[in-house]
């Protein structure tokens, strides 16, 4: 079998699970080294960035014009709501919460293009959701994901015995939920 990036014999057969999708790579020794350096976030040569991107390694795609320091900084980047770092996502292939799509939008975009060949949803929309980017900040999803962060703060406040703060957090959560969660049907509640 030939290497997927040149005419040499492929000696490395890699099964990539990182993005949640299984991809098989068949590479020669040289291209395997480049690829592995990139996926480890080690800032390997960006020459093959495009090919590596096609191979599905998230870090490979981010390697374009970025230094090792920048990549390391990116890995440290954490979601304000659920706290997941980009590094954790790269390792698990699963995101932490819906807000990650906002927080890591720039980083996720090349990955999403790679998987789907598109970045714009053209299908159905929930009837309550906004149809334009401009109103996204006001949307239910944007406000409701805030609850994830507030719940974390509340937990911390309780751990520090700061009950005043915990109460504030609780009230803030309730206000958002009351505003965005559709009212329950009273006669069918358990």
């Amino acid at each position: 079998m030939k290497c997927q990036q040149c005419d040499k014999q492929a000696v490395f057969h890699i099964t990539e699970l990182e993005t949640g999708a299984v991809r098989e790579l068949h590479l020669c020794e040289d291209h395997a080294r480049v690829y592995l350096n990139q996926t480890e976030g080690g800032g390997g040569s960006a020459d093959e960035a495009e090919d590596a991107a096609a191979a599905g390694g998230a870090a490979g795609q981010l390697g374009v014009g970025q230094t090792a320091d920048e990549l390391a900084a990116l890995d440290q980047k954490a979601c304000d709501m659920c706290g997941i770092t980009f590094f954790e996502f790269r390792n698990q292939g699963r995101l932490g919460c819906p807000h990650d799509y906002v927080q890591f939008a720039k980083e996720l975009e090349p990955l999403i293009v790679n998987i789907h060949g598109a970045t714009e949803h053209t299908g159905r929309r929930p009837s309550r959701s906004p149809t334009t980017v401009e109103t996204a900040a006001a949307s239910g999803t944007a406000e409701l994901t805030g609850v994830i962060g507030l719940r974390r703060e509340m937990k911390d406040a309780i751990a520090c015995e700061d009950y005043e703060k915990a109460k504030e957090n609780r009230d803030a959560i309730r206000a958002i939920e009351d505003r965005w969660i559709p009212p329950a049907r009273p006669d069918s509640q358990e």
Binding site: G20, V102, T119, G123, R125, P126, S129, T141
Partner: peptide
């Protein structure tokens, strides 16, 4: 179900899922 449940939705990325391989329609 949507009458009683708020779904995580992004104006550009669509329905938001734990794995980016399902994002968009989630179908």
């Amino acid at each position: 179900i949507e009458q009683f449940v708020p779904y995580a939705f992004h104006p550009r990325f669509g329905y938001l899922t734990a794995c980016p391989t399902n994002v968009g329609t989630g179908i």
